[in-house]
Design a protein around this nucleic acid. Structure first.
Length: 567
RNA sequence: UGGGGUGUCGUCAAGCGGUAAGACACAGGACUUUGGUUCCUGCAUUCGGAGGUUCGAAUCCUCCCACCCCAGCCA
């Protein structure tokens, strides 16, 4: 696999966030400073949807000469784990982004956040509420009806300060008290009906250990973390639109630096699911082999499948950024992948379903070596030697005893080219007496077509890939297909569950494949184009010197398949 | 039926009052030692609908319709 020759940048299209930033720059807002952040909660692995957000935040920062922080939103110790922190860092890095020395955690700010909460209490903008969870829900009212004020709403500053301090000290059990903002119980926006700011949680945190037993809620921690870091544009997904008034309220009441929250539509992809909960369900239910199963839309799954960071970044630029809910066609992701791989991956020959061919008029002991071009798209990638001998394997699919119209591969009496080698003509078909299965083909070759072309200018329509039987190496190849058969598996209408739509053919393992000998020294994770078939990468987990394992990353476009389907 | 959003080609998506970019997909054709790549060509007289303003509207106004989000001490 060749390194990308330069920064891979898709053509930049205007979008509403770029417009906002352009305007801010024109008005010299924040003195022209641009800072974004990517704020994952470490409670799961990153997926392609997160890649959109990562590319957006880090990309914008790059584009506008700004900075992008990586900040873990780790305010809920019950769900968060260090394993996730590590995988997230690895994935962001792999995607090609650099947070420099700006790796932050919301938990870094717990002390500061506590102080802010205290000052809200002092301003009579927050109070300790001793209603239980169910009561709070009841008092909140409904979408149509206003809420009712908590009986604890008018506790004195002194009482609130005292209670809050004692909450912090651990004097109360979980759920006995919360700190709430004092806003407006009749607001049509439910988020403004005295939202909870802090809850008591006697739980160890992966970073702060047992230092705290009260933890801030998202709405309180997030905006203030943005503010503390000096983030100028706080980009999040659409469902937080309703939270923006609260975000603004908090920063205004505390009179601190005020970032602008901007919401965009999260990515949806057809034939897969992009929700942490569903993905976790697939992993835990054993429907896939793990977060890095090559069928998973997780970053680690895509990486193991053979996707490149360049392809993912190009994809994220090409899908655009807007506010309307939309579903992107998987075909676009695959297009971006093929486009990158076509330019960068070496060609190689591998036969998935081997059919032996004996070349009757080729000398028994002779072995020739042919030069094969490594990448017709890039001559700097050079050539390699491939061995040829009297017995070879070709793809079973490339022979038809009774060829349909427009089939111009091998069939009885027909001549085809063996890529980089000779023209051969099929003279005999050998079958198993009992099953009728074709076991072997006999062909003759034309010595005057050495290298794969003839001086008489005779045309052959078909060119086949092949390997020398005596020299090839065995390999296991895993054929992957889309994980779900349904375009929108998350549509669980009529009592269906998304797991019912898992594609039973999403993985097919081929154990007796034959590949050219040079592949023996292929590095784990390296990606090749198997000529005429697709792109395959050496599995970075299970391939070894004893057993070469390839994952099919993506097929080549196959126009013959289309023609045949139409017939 | 409260509030917040969104509706431009099959799918994404530009467009910001001057007469519908681009990409994917799809369909033809050329080239080809990968039925790959590449290259041509075609693909929205119309922007959710109806009215209105204007010389001129996807862009402004009015009404209507559809879809998404919100009642966690999750993020």
């Amino acid at each position: 696999m060749k390194e990308p020759s330069g920064p891979v940048l898709a053509e930049l299209t205007p979008n509403f966030i770029r417009n906002i930033i352009d305007n801010d720059l024109n008005s010299n807002k924040n003195n022209g400073r641009i800072m974004t952040r990517f704020p994952p909660e470490p409670n799961g692995y990153l997926h392609i949807g997160h890649a959109k957000s990562i590319c957006l935040n880090f990309g914008l920062a790059q584009e506008y000469n700004g900075l992008c922080n990586l900040r873990f939103d780790d305010t809920n110790p019950a769900k968060e784990e260090i394993e996730y922190v590590d995988s997230i860092k690895e994935d962001v890095k792999w995607l090609g982004f650099d947070w420099g020395n700006r790796l932050y955690y919301a938990s870094d700010y717990f002390e500061k956040l506590y102080e802010y909460a205290l000052s809200l209490i002092k301003k009579e903008k927050a109070y300790v509420c001793s209603l239980n969870a169910e009561e709070i829900r009841k008092y909140r009212g409904t979408l149509k009806e206003p809420g009712i004020e908590s009986p604890y709403r008018n506790r004195s500053i002194e009482e609130n300060s005292d209670l809050f301090e004692r909450m912090k000290k651990g004097e109360f059990p979980n759920g006995s008290h919360v700190l709430r903002a004092k806003i407006d119980m009749s607001s049509p926006n439910l988020n403004m009906r005295d939202p909870v700011l802090y809850r008591i949680l006697h739980a160890d945190h992966h970073r702060t250990g047992s230092n705290w037993c009260i933890y801030p809620m998202y709405d309180f921690a997030h905006g203030l973390s943005d503010s503390i870091e000096g983030v100028t544009h706080s980009i999040c997904t659409l469902e937080f639109e309703d939270h923006r008034p609260l975000y603004d309220w908090m920063l205004d009441e505390l009179n601190v630096f005020h970032p602008q929250q901007i919401e965009f539509a999260r990515l949806n992809l057809n034939y897969t699911v992009l929700s942490k909960r569903k993905l976790l369900e697939l992993v835990e239910g054993g429907f896939v082999s793990g977060w890095d199963d090559p069928r998973m839309p997780s970053i680690s799954g895509l990486r193991r499948r053979g996707y490149t960071p360049e392809a993912i970044r190009t994809f994220c630029e090409r899908i655009g950024v807007a506010k309307s809910n939309s579903v992107v066609d998987m075909a676009l992701l695959e297009f971006c992948l093929r486009e990158d791989l076509n330019k960068r991956s070496p060609r190689v020959m591998g036969v998935l379903n081997p059919l032996k061919v004996v070349i009757d008029n080729y000398p028994e002991e002779l072995v020739e070596e042919f030069d094969a071009i490594n990448n017709p798209e890039d001559s700097s990638m050079g050539t390699r030697k491939i061995p040829f001998s009297r017995e070879i394997y070709i793809e079973r699919e490339d022979f038809r005893e009774d060829p349909p119209k427009k089939f111009f591969r091998l069939s009885p009496g027909r001549e085809v080219r063996l890529k980089s080698a000779y023209y051969i003509t099929c003279v005999n078909v050998v079958k198993d007496e009992n099953t009728g299965e074709i076991t072997q083909l006999h062909c003759t070759y034309d010595p005057k077509t050495r290298g794969g072309s003839s001086e008489d200018g005779r045309k052959v329509k078909g060119t086949l890939h092949w390997v020398s039987a005596a020299h090839c190496v065995e390999a296991q190849v895993r054929l992957y297909d889309r994980l779900f058969t349904k375009e929108n598996p998350a549509d669980e209408k009529d009592g269906h569950n998304f797991k019912e739509f898992i594609n039973p053919k999403s993985l097919e393992i081929l154990k007796l494949c034959k590949v050219e000998p040079g592949l023996l020294k292929a590095l784990p994770g390296s990606i090749y184009q198997f000529e005429r078939l697709g792109y395959f990468c050496v599995d970075n987990k299970e391939s070894s010197e004893n057993l070469l394992v390839f994952n099919r990353t993506v097929t080549l476009r196959d126009s013959w398949a289309k023609i045949e389907k139409k017939q």
